[in-house]
Computed example of a mutant assay.
Amino acid sequence: MEYRQLGRSGLRVSALSLGTMTFGGKDVFGNVGHTDIAGAKRQIDMCLDAGVNLIDTANMYSRGASEEILGQALAGKRDKVLISSKVRLSMGDGPNDEGLSRAHILEQVDASLRRLGTDHLDIYHVHQWDGLTPLEETMRTLDSLVRSGKVRYLGVSNFSGWQLMKAQSVAASLGYEQFASNQIYYSLESRDAEYELIPASLDQGLGVLVWSPLAGGLLSGKYRRGQQPADGRHLTEWSEPPVRDEEKLYDTIETVMDVASAHGTSPAQIALAYLLTKPGVSSLVIGARKDEQLADNLKSAEVTLSQEEVDRLDTISAPDLIYPHWHQSNLVSSRFSSADLALHRPAR
């Protein structure tokens, strides 16, 4: 297993990390999986054996059940892993049961620590944007968690580019702890993150953690043009990620299948290995309903793609250059930085 620096921080994380959205299976999360304590222990042991040192969860996964199961499954093994959790989304019906207010963050971090059976979180992500709470309040509260020792590093997830930069600027101007990681959706199905979030992460020194790197299973190989899979998340009410260009998706899947055939590996391993070639990526968060899916995904750490194969995958999945990127490409590409080139370098 390769270990990568989490942005400019001193923390080193495994190139693959374990996602726990399948733990619990309550409410809508039942569409993703129903992993119980026994299953969680098996998957954690599989990951530890493979060299994984980061496990990602969130307070709202199955309304706390994911954290509870993870905490019990990690009994006696807490010092072997880094734990990431999140705060922002709804945890109840009250007016203060969501958001990034001081009240909600302080209540939820203590609840997460209790459920996980630990005295600290290694990475604490704000899970989504809160347009009603002043960023000064949010960043001051997060800074206090780092100073208290309850949290080691701060992370952000699902912000837009301007929201991320505003938060970083507020923290810097007031001397507060800034974000060290950016957890985002990024896959061969959709490379929208290359417009702003990957360049901003490179510029600001944030390590990128990728959620749903297989696009909710769309890139696993079971979804093919003209064929209906027997099972899968996209046959349920779970609609993430949305597919906006079905023909492009199937063209991409066919290329992934060709590359996988040449390597004698699964399509999932190729899709994951591709993302590990992308600038700024620190770790891919992988989760699975079945142990065999997890075992297959873990093998992607052993796959090395040639530059020609990366170029093929870049070309077939390339996002359109929206404004102002096409204008910049036409007129000022001679002075692009490495952050600019995260979008403009790939083969098109």
Rank of each mutant, 00 (worst) to 15 (best):
Q5I: 05
G7V: 03
G7P: 00
R8P: 04
S9N: 01
L11M: 14
L11S: 06
R12V: 02
V13T: 02
A15D: 06
L16A: 08
L18S: 08
T20N: 13
T20Y: 09
K26A: 09
D27E: 14
F29G: 06
F29L: 05
V32L: 14
T35A: 07
G39N: 11
D45M: 10
D49Q: 12
A50N: 01
A50F: 08
L54D: 06
D56Y: 05
G64M: 04
E68N: 10
L70Q: 06
L74H: 12
A75Y: 14
K86S: 06
V87W: 05
V87F: 05
R88V: 01
M91K: 07
E98R: 10
S101D: 12
L106M: 15
L106Q: 09
Q108D: 15
Q108A: 11
V109T: 13
D110F: 11
D110M: 09
A111T: 14
A111Q: 15
L113P: 08
R115F: 03
D119F: 11
L121K: 07
D122K: 01
D122R: 00
I123T: 01
H125M: 04
H127Y: 09
G131S: 08
L132S: 11
E136T: 14
L142M: 11
D143V: 04
S144H: 09
L145W: 04
V146Q: 07
S148P: 09
G149R: 14
V151L: 05
R152M: 09
Y153E: 00
L154V: 02
S157K: 03
G161F: 06
Q168H: 11
S169K: 01
E177I: 02
E177D: 12
Q178E: 10
F179D: 05
F179Y: 07
Q183N: 07
Q183H: 13
S187N: 08
S190F: 03
S190Y: 12
D192Y: 12
D192Q: 13
E196L: 13
L197F: 01
A200F: 01
L202N: 01
Q204I: 02
G205I: 02
G205Y: 05
L206D: 02
G207F: 05
G207R: 02
V208T: 04
V208I: 15
L209N: 05
L214R: 04
L214D: 01
A215I: 01
G217A: 12
L219P: 00
G221N: 03
K222Q: 13
G226L: 15
G226Y: 08
P229R: 01
A230L: 13
W238S: 12
W238E: 00
S239Q: 15
P242F: 08
V243Q: 07
R244Q: 11
E246P: 03
E247R: 14
E247M: 10
L249S: 08
D251N: 15
I253L: 03
T255P: 02
M257A: 13
D258G: 08
S261P: 03
Q269A: 15
Y274K: 09
Y274C: 07
T277K: 14
K278M: 10
G280R: 04
L284Q: 10
I286L: 11
G287D: 08
D291G: 15
D296W: 06
T304C: 09
L305F: 05
V310K: 10
D314W: 08
S317E: 10
S317C: 01
W326N: 14
H327P: 06
V332W: 10
S337K: 13
S338L: 11
D340Q: 04
H344G: 03
A347N: 15
